Computed example of a mutant assay.
Amino acid sequence: MAGRLAFAAALGGCLALSVPAASAAAAPAEAVPTVFFGDSYTANFGITPINDTDKPRGLCFQATENYPAVATRRLAGKGITLSVQSDVSCGGALVENFGREQQLPFGVGTVPAQRNALKDDTKLVVGGMGGNTLGFTSILKQCSAKLRGGEGAILPGAPVDPDSPSGECRDFLTAGDGKEWLDYKFEQVETELVDMLDSMSYLSPEAERVLVGYPRLVPQDTTKCLTPAPGQTQLPFADIPKDALPVLDQVQKRLNDVMKKATADTGADYVDLYDHTGKNTACDGAGRGIGGLLENSKVELGTQPIPWYAHPNEKGRTIQAERVAATIETVLNR
């Protein structure tokens, strides 16, 4: 039960700029003071080893080789040096945790509001949030009987409406109370993202702000999701009905669109991962950049592997890092 509570808190879990061609302008001559923020997709939950040098922050399940670390090295190879002041990304973070402390598992305490990492001299702020505030894990549980049971006990959130059968989640999410709930959550995410991006400019007036979107989980051709990945026995989305997969994709696309709009409204920049990962979804077999819902990740509780729960694997992390580095290079060179 302790393990379940740990991950319930630790897991959660965008139109300003796509990634254009890199500018020919000279790279910044001096190191750029940088802060990375975000949720489990920035922390890269599921990849090990975990950065646990600063306890209790180890319970954020932030990979030492998350995309901020990989992107920073990639930029250094091009002569662009980021002086990383902090990487405060933490699994389970809500958008509100940018502005206020986040409770950690096991009752060990909290980590400070992520905004505390920003300084007067910070010149670059990069990361992504929104999925946990939207309640994406609750949507997954609305559509999966397995996730409502023991196999999803350590995944945070509850079904939106446990009285509505998981097999009917498509209809639930596209009409009536389910649709009304979704519309409200999207409004909440947009409002909170705009407030967060505006607060960055207040805290670090000279900082470029880069909001990183989420990679695509469900492919356009959902028949690919009816075959387990090589070496796996579970389907990529377990028992989620096939007719619900397009709805999950629509929800994710809408979330990324909300993130894009928030950056456009605040003058920030956006990293489009959704439009660049259509061939690396959880259903793309050996080419998948997303670990399946119940596919074992690299993280263990004791000796028990914990599922990916649809987070980027190493391939997906590398794609994140490439796209983020390309955007940072463009932003700093313009």
Rank of each mutant, 00 (worst) to 15 (best):
R216S: 13
I319P: 09
T318F: 01
T303H: 00
I319W: 08
N51C: 13
G285A: 03
K55W: 10
V251H: 02
Y214E: 11
L235M: 12
T327A: 13
L173H: 08
V111R: 06
G176K: 09
T174V: 04
T266P: 07
D243W: 15
Q142T: 04
C60F: 05
V324M: 05
G46W: 00
G91D: 03
S199Y: 09
N280V: 01
A113T: 08
D87L: 01
V111P: 07
A9H: 07
R73L: 15
T81C: 10
G135F: 06
T64M: 01
R74E: 15
R73Y: 13
N333G: 12
L104W: 08
V84W: 01
G278L: 15
G128I: 14
D239F: 13
I328V: 15
P307V: 04
M259K: 01
S166E: 03
F61L: 11
I328N: 08
S18P: 07
Y214G: 09
S204N: 03
L273R: 11
T137F: 04
N44W: 02
E151G: 05
V95S: 02
T133R: 04
E180I: 05
P205R: 12
G302L: 00
S164H: 08
D195T: 15
L235V: 13
N44C: 06
Q102L: 06
A25D: 10
E300G: 03
G285K: 05
L332E: 12
A158P: 00
D177A: 15
Y41S: 04
K315V: 03
H311V: 07
T263M: 05
L293E: 00
A321V: 04
V218H: 00
F237C: 06
Y274L: 14
Q188R: 15
R209D: 06
P49F: 03
D171V: 09
P156G: 12
V189I: 09
G213E: 12
D120S: 12
E329Y: 09
T72A: 14
C169S: 07
P246Q: 07
E314I: 01
E300Y: 08
G285L: 00
V70E: 02
V19R: 11
A175P: 07
K279P: 01
K261Q: 12
T266Y: 14
I47M: 02
V218T: 06
A153E: 13
V271H: 07
D221K: 14
K185F: 12
A153Q: 11
T263R: 02
D161W: 03
E151T: 07
L94T: 12
R216M: 14
L147N: 05
P28K: 15
G128W: 09
E190Q: 14
R100W: 00
N256V: 13
E192A: 15
V108E: 04
T53Q: 15
Q252C: 14
T263K: 01
K55C: 02
P105H: 05
F37Q: 03
R148P: 02
A26R: 12
A16C: 11
Y309Q: 01
Q234G: 09
A43V: 03
T266G: 12
E187A: 12
S23Q: 05
